[in-house]
Design a protein around this nucleic acid. Sequence first.
DNA 1: ATACATGCAAATCATTTGCGCAGTC
DNA 2: GACTGCGCAAATGATTTGCATGTAT
Lengths: 142, 142
Amino acid sequence: MTGYKKSRIREAILETLKGTRTHPPADWVWEEVKKIYPSATLATVYRNLHILESQGKILALDVGQGEKRYDGFVHHHAHFVCRKCGEVYDCEIKEGSFAKGMNIPGEVEAFQLTLYGVCERCMTKVMFPTGQSGKKQDKRER
Amino acid sequence: MTGYKKSRIREAILETLKGTRTHPPADWVWEEVKKIYPSATLATVYRNLHILESQGKILALDVGQGEKRYDGFVHHHAHFVCRKCGEVYDCEIKEGSFAKGMNIPGEVEAFQLTLYGVCERCMTKVMFPTGQSGKKQDKRER
DNA sequence: ATACATGCAAATCATTTGCGCAGTC
DNA sequence: GACTGCGCAAATGATTTGCATGTAT
């Protein structure tokens, strides 16, 4: 039932995710993997992302942008999502600090803490009244 | 730009969400609204859910199940998602307790804290080895 | 040899959008 | 009357799946 064989593509995906802190979506991972294995398919990338997630080697994040973001760093940390530029930042978390005093109706195995706001970079940026939100920026340019 | 007119359907959606603590998905809200306005469409429900969310009257939750869940209670609280039955529970949060000591790269306007695990109800349930996960239960039966 | 991995194309599922008409201000 | 809301149907976009073939053990 848990018999996974070695897969070059799966390894490439894991290395790609461990090599960035940008929390990329699946198609960006695909672009990276294709640089090494040009025949790789998006379907294969998705299949392997699921396997890696079930093995606890990566995290799948829902940051409320429609597409999932993947994270090769599985130590406990939170994420800050800028609602202007869409960037996802890591935030250190003080272990066990936040769950204290909460009424939790079960046994917690994992958690996801996402903070939404405007990042410092966007706050200091001068805003032109031309109405560009920048929210939907080109995903490929990271 | 913010000129919304009164809409019976939108009001019904808001009341529906304020009348439950089950964090329902859009199509469940639709079923409820149709009981009062049978002609209402899912597209209209989605449009109004977005408006209500932008007005800060409801919350849209990503609990990692593909579809968004909506919440008519906007006070600060966290959610516990059972990975067996898929139920979403509310958890009280001690105001400002968890953000302390974190390195946040911007100004936080909102946050979402989701805990994943197995709820007490499922833990006490006897498990038959028939392989049913129950994860994909019928959404309509709430 | 057997079971898992992959490519390809088609399917799925939640959500969104264009358009013409209806309701509100 | 101008502008927003609605129903309908079609479009979209991310993710999944069936099937035949390739690869690891």
